[in-house]
Amino acid sequence: MRTAFIRTLSALAEKDKNVWLVTGDLGFSVFENFIRRFPKQYLNVGVAEQNLIGVSAGLALSGKRPFAYSISTFASMRAYEQIRNDLCYQDLPVAIIAGGSSFSYSTFGCTHFPMEDFAIMRALPNMTVISPGDPLEVEALLKGMNKLRGPSYMRIAKKGEPTVHTTKSSIALGKVALLESGEDAAIIATGRILPSAQMAAEILKGRGIRASVVSCHTLKPLDARGLLAALKGKKVIATCEEHHEIGGLGGAVSELIAKNGITSRFLSIAIPDEFPSGVGSQEYFLERYHLTPEGISRKVEKAFRAK
């Protein structure tokens, strides 16, 4: 996804000299070509996330369109007040690009595990919150972010994630994308867990359960109409995300279904309210929290068959 990000940003920067890349001293082996091609549209502020956001706000006040990059935890939390006041309150078109999904840095410890960022970004007025599920979503949604008049936040993974979509045409900022149709259950996924959700639906099919798969890459504004259409009549609704169960996709969807009187069985497959202990691979943590094809399908099947 990170490669898709820089490739797409380079194309945007080539067309529009107001497109800038601003980094908090990260991007080794990824940004070098951009820096060489667009030196006047690039800034490294150093290890200073508050300044990353504040300076980006100043650039936006001058008519620039900065894409501000850091690791997800630092990008979302270290400068939260700058994001709130400088970007959201002033409603400036700064796009925050947050590198790393919850377990991208799986051996680094929880300082590097973004698990709250969707919740805190969703809480901000004027903020658009995006979590692409594959490189095609990164490309399409980044182009969408570049057209926004206000601030946005995109969390991308960085380990060469597979492509899920077969075409870009079904990907639009603010709209869910239906990847599979099934009448029994709906699996809604956001972020790099998307291919696992799709594989979970395959497994379920083999067990006689027909599940829809929905990519909800835009967490805010939530595509209420698209989601409600996809959820209608399903016995089980499951959300899957690399995020705490508080305030992320599960929170957003549960708010939506509660408001709309939907009484399907609801499952939030997410990280519980804890700092994951121990060290291991990305897969090790994903398995622990049932965020694998097997884990998702097992949970959905159990809910489906429960009396």
């Binding site: 006047k40 800034l43 508050q50 300044n51 956001i53 504040g54 300076v55 980006s56 706000a57 100043g58 650039l59 936006a60 006040l61 001058s62 008519g63 620039k64 007040e81 700058q82 006041n85 400088d86 309150y89 002033q90």
Partner: peptide, 24 residues
Amino acid sequence: EATSGALGHGLAMALGLALAGKRD
């Protein structure tokens, strides 16, 4: 030219403006 109120925000924004002005 900018919203302020929380302390420590104005200089970074002025820096961004100044850098854009310089490069332009």
